[in-house]
């Protein structure tokens, strides 16, 4: 008999296919030696952003930093940097380590971010065949309304914010644009809530706040509760204690006392909400 059994032939073919796949997927897969930054593992992407921020702190070249960030494929480089800064602060990394990332985020935020990571520049021309990357953000500036607000806050009356004369001048002290007592029994009693906005009214993470009282002082940062907003921070006040609040690069707000709020069966300790904005 010299006639092949079709079933056996099919089995041989499938066995060969299986062997081929096992070899090409398992034993000797396509070796990846020319990868791009956008497929780096998350922790390496963080490391990459850190070094981009450090390089930006060294050379001050925002276009170069932006081109480098675009290689990581983040949908929004500002948000990615902010989130990373918050994570670093949350795990107790010293602010000095985070500062460069915050500075780069601020620098990005301070400019219009257009979706042109592969725009012709002498820098991006260095890269051959750049991968197609998701644009950073839409050409339009991100509006404050798109930023998550501190939704748990129950504010019955909104203090209208004074019209700000926008100025790109950095380094001016933060301006207190709103201060109001919050009488909401659903919130923690004596909660001091602080929101820091930049000159475009976007929430600013990583801003240091200093609370002082008679015999004590505490430092904390905005952005440690990103679910409540990147520029949000809060502090638990004690009844009867007078505090002073000083935001980084801002004037101190003295004589802060948790208010007593009326309640049907007496009163409860209310909170205070502050909103600061960069001029």
């Amino acid at each position: 008999m010299n006639r092949a059994n079709p079933l056996m032939t099919l089995i041989a073919l499938l066995a060969g296919l299986g062997l081929g796949l096992a070899y090409s997927w398992g034993i000797s897969p396509v070796s990846y030696t020319d990868s791009t930054p956008n497929i780096l593992r998350a922790d390496f992407k963080d490391q990459y952003r850190t070094i981009i921020a450090a390089a930006f702190a060294s050379n001050g070249d925002i276009e170069r930093a932006r081109a480098r960030l675009s290689l990581l494929g983040d949908n929004d480089s500002f948000q990615a940097l902010s989130a990373q800064a918050q994570q670093m602060l949350a795990v107790g990394r010293p602010y000095e380590d985070v500062e460069q990332i915050v500075q780069l985020a601020s620098a990005l935020q301070g400019q219009k971010i257009f979706a042109s990571p592969t725009s012709p520049s002498s820098y991006s021309a260095q890269f051959t065949a750049l991968p197609t990357l998701t644009p950073l953000v839409n050409a339009a500036l991100v509006d404050l309304t798109t930023i998550p607000q501190s939704t748990p806050l129950v504010i019955t009356t909104t203090t209208s914010r004074p019209t700000q004369t926008l100025s790109p001048t950095p380094g001016l002290p933060l301006i207190l644009i709103s201060q109001e007592e919050i009488c909401n029994s659903e919130l923690n009693s004596g909660l001091m809530q602080i929101t820091i906005l930049d000159e475009r009214r976007r929430q600013s993470p990583g801003i240091e706040l200093t609370i002082t009282w008679d015999g004590g002082e505490e430092h904390f940062f905005t952005g440690l509760k990103p679910e409540l907003g990147n520029g949000y921070a809060d502090y638990q006040m004690t009844e009867g204690v007078t505090y002073s609040l000083k935001p980084e690069n801002g004037n101190p707000i003295p004589n802060i006392i948790a208010p007593a709020c009326p309640a049907p069966n007496g009163s409860f300790l209310g909170g205070i909400k502050f909103i600061f904005q960069k001029p």
Partner: peptide, 25 residues
């Protein structure tokens, strides 16, 4: 038949649908 199968397997595994690398270093 076996060799053809192996060839098809290699073609598929290396060229048509190679292992996708994410989380690279």
């Amino acid at each position: 038949a076996l060799v053809i199968g192996i060839s098809l397997g290699l073609l598929y595994g290396w060229a048509i649908d190679p292992v996708e690398f994410i989380d690279t270093t």
